[in-house]
């Protein structure tokens, strides 16, 4: 397909530009790009649910925030966490939390699913907000970035903003490729069939609950991965990283960029964060501008920004 080839070329160009970025841009822009890439991974994980499985979650920040908190919780006080153990811990912890929440949430449909995911995420939020775990409502600083030493060799330093940028870039590329492969797999096809017609999937013999739960768990794990690097970059964690405000923002990124295309989630994350910056520079009431933009996109670009480039991509498989 021609659109596929064009997309591949575009992807390679963007990737080369991203690799070259630290050579040409200053610290501010490298850190901004790091943040965009982290949010892009987060948005892709939500797109797996919203755009591919048809599960509109309004509690996805719970897994991002949980992954972030595990960076802080894995570290002894005033010391660094071990990167090689804390990263799997954060991803695995977020996956477990997602499996537990998903076990109840994916039994519900439509607006009830939205409500249940929101409610569970708020429960997680208040656990961290109202108890002494990791500093309560103030959150906690990550005094020292995770230590990446491996048998005495330190391959990269997460406190160095360029190193962190390249690590995050590698994580982003890996997450994108893994999600692409998974979406084309037998499992991925089942998930997309459930979005289009869950009833028919059941009558064809697919126990849909199982597949939705696995999709929810994978999405939670990838969100936890994003959260881990979010905490490493920010140097602190606080309950807002679990809150419904962030859940809403990431959902807007997915809608803005275009649901059901991973590239859309990436474009959405970039557009959202850049628009936020531009609008903040223009006016104190920047959220009004942001809201207006989202409404206009929803009205006039039902397939999001990515829909401009690939108008027929969504749902076209097989």
């Amino acid at each position: 397909m021609r659109s596929d080839r064009a997309a591949t070329v575009l992807l390679i160009v963007v990737l080369l530009a991203l690799v070259a970025l630290p050579a040409v841009a200053g610290k501010y822009y490298v850190q901004l790009a790091t943040k965009i890439l982290i949010m892009a991974v987060f948005a892709m994980s939500l797109d797996l649910l919203v755009g591919y499985a048809g599960l509109v979650s309004l509690g996805h920040a719970a897994f991002f925030g949980f992954g972030a908190y595990l960076v802080a919780l894995a570290a002894p006080q005033y010391q660094a966490a071990n990167f090689w153990t804390s990263l799997p811990l954060a991803v695995g912890g977020a996956a477990l939390l997602a499996a537990a929440i998903g076990f109840f949430a994916v039994r519900t449909q439509g607006v009830y699913f939205i409500m249940v995911t929101l409610a569970f995420a708020q429960m997680v939020y208040y656990v961290f907000h109202d108890t002494k775990i990791a500093g309560g409502s103030d959150g906690i600083f990550i005094d020292v970035r995770p230590d990446t030493a491996l048998f005495g060799w330190t391959p990269f330093d997460l406190a160095n903003f360029v190193h962190l940028y390249f690590v995050v870039l590698a994580v982003f590329v890996a997450a994108y490729l893994v999600l692409r492969v998974v979406l084309a797999s037998p499992f991925g096809r089942v998930v997309q069939g459930i979005r289009v017609n869950e009833h028919r999937m059941k009558s064809l013999g697919f126990p849909t609950f199982r597949y939705k739960l696995v999709a929810f768990t994978i999405a939670g794990a990838v969100a936890g991965l994003a959260g881990y690097f979010g905490a490493v970059q920010y140097g602190a964690v606080n309950p807002e990283m679990l809150g419904w405000h962030l859940s809403g923002s990431v959902l807007m990124m997915v809608i803005l960029g275009g649901m059901g295309t991973l590239a859309g989630a990436v474009i959405g994350a970039a557009a959202f964060l850049l628009l936020e910056l531009v609008f903040q520079g223009l006016s104190e009431h920047w959220q009004l501008l942001m809201g207006t933009t989202i409404v206009l996109v929803a009205l006039f670009l039902p397939n999001g920004i990515a829909g401009l480039a690939w108008p027929l991509q969504r749902g076209r498989s097989g």
Binding site: V181, S185, P186, F187, R189, L204, G205, F206, R210, V214
Partner: peptide, 14 residues
């Protein structure tokens, strides 16, 4: 595909 014992296969194209 529904006749596979399980569709929990993630890494090869469907």
């Amino acid at each position: 595909q529904s006749r596979l014992a399980s569709s929990l296969r993630f890494f090869r194209p469907a």
